[in-house]
């Protein structure tokens, strides 16, 4: 019941957003711009895996959106947010599935429109955790001064953008280190990118860095953080919860099609589309945007990449 109410509310909000955004950009795309594939894009450091995860959903939606001139589906993966943004600006992408920070940048930099919240990996929302080895006896964020912390990669919301903002908000000064061996400047916290969640945990475990950052989903994933590590690790900070991921329509997708896509996404349910959803990065469901979500995204972009 509450779900239906939320649904309607989100639809109104979406319409509102569209009305604001579209005239600003002065871009009105025709409803049907000839036969072309529906392009779904994402930033990925595991393109092979992600391609397989995204393609079924892209095909499904392309099929549903035939009326809007789509005769097939494509999945485009980019190794950085910049590359993705560039592609969107070129009009090569119709539809994006991304985490909050990249979503915020897309909205900001490409006038893309969020369509729905994506319960990626079964998570509606998640939090960032900063952890250390118990025996290092680093008990607070302040203890990290003169130490090294491992982030995942620069495009990560939960393992870079968010923890960085947390550390900076805690008054710490961060400096990026080239190599783990590089010395940490006096009074600062050195940070390094571990490239993925697993490395993040291992670096902490092998004392390459003093602390690591992972979202709660990865923290509980035994493939990324082995259960025995939990006993050795000590979480020194947990962030607030944030939406897990968003589906966005780029300006290349007509508002009608975007609307139709949103409707189609929200119409997917575990009852009828369990397989399709599961393949789509273990998505539990899609939920309509709420105002606070839009605010959250707005806030992310307002800070211009600075941690809120």
């Amino acid at each position: 019941m509450s779900r239906l109410v939320a649904h309607r509310r989100a639809a109104i909000l979406f319409f509102f957003v569209l009305c604001i955004v579209l005239p600003v950009n002065g871009v009105v795309l025709p409803a049907t711009a000839g036969a072309e594939p529906l392009v779904l894009a994402q930033v990925s450091d595991r393109p092979k895996k992600d391609f397989k995860q995204l393609l079924p959903m892209a095909r499904y939606m392309a099929d549903r959106l035939q009326a809007y001139g789509f005769n097939g589906a494509q999945v485009q993966l980019y190794d950085s947010a910049e590359a993705l943004i560039g592609a969107v600006r070129q009009g090569e992408v119709h539809w994006i599935s991304e985490t909050p920070y990249t979503s915020a940048r897309l909205m900001q930099e490409t006038a893309s429109t969020p369509l729905a919240k994506k319960w990626k990996n079964g998570q509606q929302q998640y939090q960032t955790m900063i952890f250390t080895l118990k025996r290092r006896e680093i008990l607070s964020l302040q203890d990290l001064v003169g130490q090294r912390i491992a982030f995942e990669h620069p495009d990560s919301f939960s393992s870079y953008f968010l923890p960085r903002r947390i550390l900076e908000n805690a008054g710490l000064s961060l400096v990026e280190l080239e190599r783990p061996e590089d010395p940490v400047p006096e009074g600062q916290v050195g940070y390094l990118f571990s490239r993925n969640e697993k490395n993040n945990a291992l670096w902490v475990d092998k004392e390459i860095v003093a602390a690591g950052t992972l979202n709660n989903g990865d923290w509980l994933n035994p493939d990324r953080v082995m259960p025995e590590m939990h006993e050795r690790f000590h979480v020194i900070h947990r962030s607030a919860f944030y939406p897990r991921a968003f589906e966005l329509a780029t300006p290349a997708l007509s508002p009608e099609a975007a609307l139709a896509l949103r409707e189609e996404l929200l119409a997917l349910s575990q009852e009828n589309h369990a397989g399709l959803l599961a393949r789509y990065e273990q998505t539990e469901q899609f939920s309509p945007l709420e105002l606070q979500d839009l605010n959250f995204l707005q806030e992310l972009t307002d800070t211009g990449g600075r941690a809120p």
């Binding site: 571990s194 697993k198 490395n199 291992l202 092998k206 390459i208």
Partner: peptide, 9 residues
């Protein structure tokens, strides 16, 4: 070089 344990692993 990057001590990318996961990649090495």
């Amino acid at each position: 070089y990057n001590q990318d344990f996961s990649a090495i692993g």
